[in-house]
């Protein structure tokens, strides 16, 4: 039973680790990595807690949700990476310009 909560806790920590990396890193590739790790954390919480049915088969609904989530994540990653490459080509730097307003 308690492995359920073990994995869920790991998911929570992964989410927060990703968030931390998203905050402190300036490089866009690292920000994208961080978002992916955050996503994995959420997915882990979703699926781990689905095992609480008390039977052999876990709840399949969160599983389907996570598969959807993984596909969404890879789509977003591909778009983000392309944007990053274009931005780097324009600015010469794979970071967000500090002030883009003027």
């Amino acid at each position: 039973m308690s492995t359920v909560f073990l994995y869920a806790l790991v998911g929570v920590v992964l989410f927060s680790l990703g968030l931390y990396a998203l905050i402190v890193h300036a490089h866009l590739l690292r920000k994208i990595l961080a978002i992916n790790v955050m996503g994995s954390g959420v997915f882990l919480v979703l699926v781990a807690l689905a095992k609480r049915t008390g039977e052999d088969t876990p709840d399949p609904v969160p599983h389907a949700m996570v598969i959807t989530g993984i596909v969404v994540a890879v789509s977003a990653t591909a778009l983000a990476l392309t944007l990053m490459l274009k931005l780097t080509a324009e600015t010469g730097n794979a970071e967000l310009p500090e002030d883009s307003r003027e």
Binding site: V42, A76, A80, L83, E90, T91, L96, P97, S100
Partner: peptide, 26 residues
């Protein structure tokens, strides 16, 4: 250049918001 950096910020904010929302849904 402005459009790309604006869009990048927008995308990151969007993804962060979505993940946070998804966690709440979970």
């Amino acid at each position: 250049r402005d459009a790309l950096s604006g869009a990048m910020r927008y995308l990151l904010a969007n993804l962060l918001g979505s993940l946070s929302y998804l966690f709440g849904v979970a």
